[in-house]
Design a protein around this nucleic acid. Structure first.
Lengths: 128, 128
DNA sequence: CTCAACGCTCACATCGATGTGAAGGTCAAG
DNA sequence: CTTGACCTTCACATCGATGTGAGCGTTGAG
């Protein structure tokens, strides 16, 4: 498919799709006329990128993460440098921290909403 | 305490502390000489802000979140507008999505590392 | 008294993610 | 053959989060 369709199906602007490419996150092939050609898998990858991006990860990191995020692991140990492993472990830890932090905050909001809604409910009963 | 100490204790630059204030996230008092004066609780609040910020939330949202993130809920239902509640619920849902997404990705990395490390371990045994 | 270390404001710079638009190529339908 | 809807590249603009530094006030120690 071409860039327009991919943009529509992923909700990511053409501009950004080209940007992701420029950042080395995706590498579409080119038709003879120079148009970018994307395959079906690109839809998921772009969603992935989008998600990681607005989770606050920079493209630099995403680039390192992507290769190990597609299900059938096509890259084996021989191709993975020790530095890569360290980076991954590091990034994994950061993700865990992030998750814990967000969970704590979400739960705090839940608490708050729980209290607030209970109170306004009680008031409703009184005034009715 | 003054801005320098707070910066040092939170790892957030003076510049950013002033920026947070400008965005309405913290409101230090002022000494007679015009210096900002922070209290002990500000340390935690700033950490909170920092965390939410690099989890990708914009200051605009953080501003709405903060009031319901301090433990003793000092603000009750009467002061909470229905719009606020809707915003909070919305933001809570977004946080949940984010958490799920990050968790999936972290687990994928864990998987990958598991595979990779197992393989290189096996190779180690063979070559040794 | 003076100097270093801090504070203040203000403004301009940078960086990454995005938008927007110009100038032009490709192609299918009328 | 033209027109409209795509595509291309390139460049400049914007936005939020940050850095940097100028110019100036405050304060405490030597």
């Amino acid at each position: 498919m071409r860039i327009g369709e991919l943009a529509e199906r992923t909700g990511v602007s053409r501009r950004l799709l080209r940007y992701y490419e420029e950042q080395g996150l995706i590498t579409p092939t080119r038709s003879p006329n120079g148009y970018r050609e994307y395959g079906e898998p690109h839809v998921d990858v772009v969603q992935q990128i989008k998600g990681l991006l607005d989770a606050g990860l920079p493209t630099r990191i995403i680039q390192q993460l992507l290769p190990c995020l597609d299900k059938p692991h096509t890259i084996y140990a021989p191709f993975v440098t020790p530095e890569m492993i360290v980076t991954l472990q590091h990034e994994q830890a950061r993700l865990s921290e992030r998750i814990e932090f967000l969970t704590r905050n979400r739960d705090a909001i839940a608490d708050y909403l729980g209290t607030v809604l209970t109170v306004s409910e009680r008031r409703e009963q009184v005034t009715s």
